[in-house]
Nucleic acid binder design. Sequence first.
DNA 1: GATCGCATGTAAGTGGTTACATGATTTA
DNA 2: TAAATCATGTAACCACTTACATGCGATC
Lengths: 185, 185
Amino acid sequence: MRENKTKYAILGMLTRGPMSGYDIKKAIDFGLHMFWSESHGQIYPGLKQLTEDGLITRDIMHQMGKPDRHIYSITERGKKELRTWLARSPEPNSYRIEVLLKLFFGHELSMDENLQNLGSFREQQSKLLEQYLSMEQHLVSEHADVPQAPYWLSTLRCGIRISKAFVGWCDETIEFLRLRDGGQK
Amino acid sequence: MRENKTKYAILGMLTRGPMSGYDIKKAIDFGLHMFWSESHGQIYPGLKQLTEDGLITRDIMHQMGKPDRHIYSITERGKKELRTWLARSPEPNSYRIEVLLKLFFGHELSMDENLQNLGSFREQQSKLLEQYLSMEQHLVSEHADVPQAPYWLSTLRCGIRISKAFVGWCDETIEFLRLRDGGQK
DNA sequence: GATCGCATGTAAGTGGTTACATGATTTA
DNA sequence: TAAATCATGTAACCACTTACATGCGATC
């Protein structure tokens, strides 16, 4: 059974308070971007469905010079539905890591090309790492008082661990392959 | 541009030598399963397309008491296509990690439920880790001589690093949340 | 006698991204 | 003056999984 999890990301964000689809998209992009993503092409139909199911309600705010804002609020039933899902053990995640697929077939490439791929991946990950570290600082210093902070911090620290692991692996692997290549000559 | 990468996984496996769709599926499940997956509902149509495009060719082997085997071989053009893709810098991977989405909204749950989710994820990852470690041993002792071995080893070691990172993070987070919970009382 | 492995394929349905569509205001 | 931001939605398209379809032989 493949389940659509967009609804839970939406419901989760609405526990912070009423907001628009646009706000939800931004909140997901900012808060979850190291481990989750939703496109607005999923969010707007999702909001429609959730409204029909009675898990959220909609209010319309008129604005001058800007489009109307549709403000959604989570209902009690919505909260219940969210909690039920949250409490079910997480399914194993299946990721697809392109750099690893490429490296697995690395024998088909020159060593130089492999090292370039690894280098570009390393750069991606070390940029992410820096970003997470500065977000962690920001969270600790600015939002330590909000009750969700420990959970946000914990997910951030997972991102930090993972990107550190990737960077470390890149360094190890670049050296390992270089040595092998040199030794072969 | 969202690109279908199934074809590259197939082409890559066929660089080992001619094999059937069934074999390819098994090779992917066994060799790539920590970072890639393909369903046979993707593989068979993929093989058809690749044959039409002239990137692979097909031979049919009759067997007694079993269905025919369709044996595919990669062509020169196929190898070229694969190499071109392999040499392009890997795209950043977008993973969806359910346990993190759940933990991000952990404030909606009891501490006990959060710890249970973390515990179940930790178990998943530590099982994976053990599996990878034994595969590493096997690879080093049995297949050290094949020319692809360093690449296979490298991808395995990435899996090892990542699952270690997850397990370490789980331990840290379980303790972090327990302390916070105890401190609050 | 049931299930698993071998072996290939198609079809239905869902998941998800990107482009299309609109349009005012602010910023570079 | 070009672009980015605010703001919402739909439609087309592709990716991917799962169920359907078939059928023999071996194992439990």
